[in-house]
Structure formats: C-alpha cells, structure tokens
C-alpha cells in the first residue's frame, strides 16, 4: 500500500481527533462557566425580590418598634450596602449582612406582641422567609455549578486546555466567619440600663 497514503491518513486522523477534542473541551468549559453565571443571576433575582420587601418591613415595624431605631437602621444600612455592591463577591457579603440584620430584627420583634399580631407584618415575614429558603437552595445550586466547573478545569488533560484558554477556578459562596457565630441580641431596654 502506498506509504504516502498511510502517513497522510494517520496524520489527518490524529489532527482531526486532537482538534475535535480541543473544541469539545472548549465548548464544555464555556457551558459550565455560563451555568455558573446563570446560577448567580438566579440568586440575584431572588435577592432583588427580598430587597424590595425590606422597605415595607421597616415601614411596618417603625410604628411599633420606636425604641429599636438601631435595629431598623441596620436593616436599612444592609439594604444600602446591597444596592452599592457591584460584583458577586460584594453582593454575597451584603447578603450575609442582610440575613444578620433580619435575624436580629425578627428576634427583637418577638418582644412586641402588637407587631407580631399585625397581619401585614406576618405576611411580609412569611414572604421573606420563603425567599430566604429559595436563596439558600440557589446558593447550594451555585456552589454545585462552581464545583463541577472547578473539577472540570483541574482534571488532566482538561487542565492543559483550560489553562491555555484562560479558565481559572471560581470561588464558592461561603458564609463569613463572623456570620457563623451566634449574634448577641441587644434590646433597647438592655442598652439603656447599660448606659
């Protein structure tokens, strides 16, 4: 058999396989990276919904919790921080801040029976609670997406292609160490006694 034909065939077959492999890896990584972006956008949508509930919550609480100005301010402040944050990392931090502020607010609200009986407050609290469950699920989903991507780009031989086309590992969404601690509750009357 013609040796030129054999050499040509092997050469072409090898190159086709190599190119097909690189294209497949490239496309896969693009898909995985976009899954992460989509997962983050899906968290952002729910964060925005909760963000829209906060002024209503503060408004309802304001008329009952006249001595908890700082608690309400912390919610407003956390909301402003979310509005000011530009990237995913800052938004995640702001989100942790909102969770903390809301946790304190709802705990302090236990001291106000009239507020707890208010239908509007109960409805907002339920909506926020449902949104928080969704956020928690979507954070897990985001971390799953990031994990799949990070595993894909660190495996051999994908890592060689990933490095060449500029794919780097992405960070997982984590809870800040300060948010893992129990938050001390300082009620208005206790602060007054201490002062």
């Amino acid at each position: 058999m013609n040796s030129t034909l054999i050499i040509g065939s092997l050469f072409v077959s090898g190159l086709i396989v190599l190119i097909a492999y690189v294209v497949a890896v490239y496309n896969r990584l693009v898909g995985l990276a976009n899954n992460i972006n989509k997962a983050w956008s899906n968290i952002d949508v729910i964060l925005k919904q909760r963000h829209d509930e906060l002024p209503k919550l503060v408004q309802v609480c304001n008329s009952y919790m006249t001595h908890e100005r700082e608690t309400l301010e912390s919610v407003t402040k956390a909301r402003s921080a979310y509005t000011a944050s530009l990237n995913a990392s800052d938004k995640a931090q702001a989100e942790n801040q909102i969770v903390g502020a809301l946790g304190t607010l709802f705990a302090v609200a236990e001291q106000y029976p009239d507020l707890k009986a208010n239908e509007e407050f109960v409805a907002i609290q339920q909506r926020i609670s449902a949104l928080e469950s969704t956020i928690a699920d979507r954070r897990e989903f985001y971390n799953d997406s990031v994990n799949l991507y990070n595993i894909a780009i660190q495996k051999i031989p994908t890592c060689w292609v990933a490095e060449e086309i500029g794919h780097a590992t992405r960070p997982l969404l984590t809870i800040a160490p300060s948010d893992r601690k129990d938050r001390p509750l300082a009620f208005a009357n206790r602060v007054a006694v201490a002062a």
């Binding site: 908890e68 903390g100 304190t104 800040a176 300060s178 948010d179 300082a186 009620f187 602060v191």
Partner: peptide
Amino acid sequence: GAAVPIQVG
C-alpha cells in the same frame, strides 16, 4: 455596643 454588631474584615 449596637443592636447589630458591625464586623470589619
């Protein structure tokens, strides 16, 4: 001394 501690990283 506040209702919500401010943590500075």
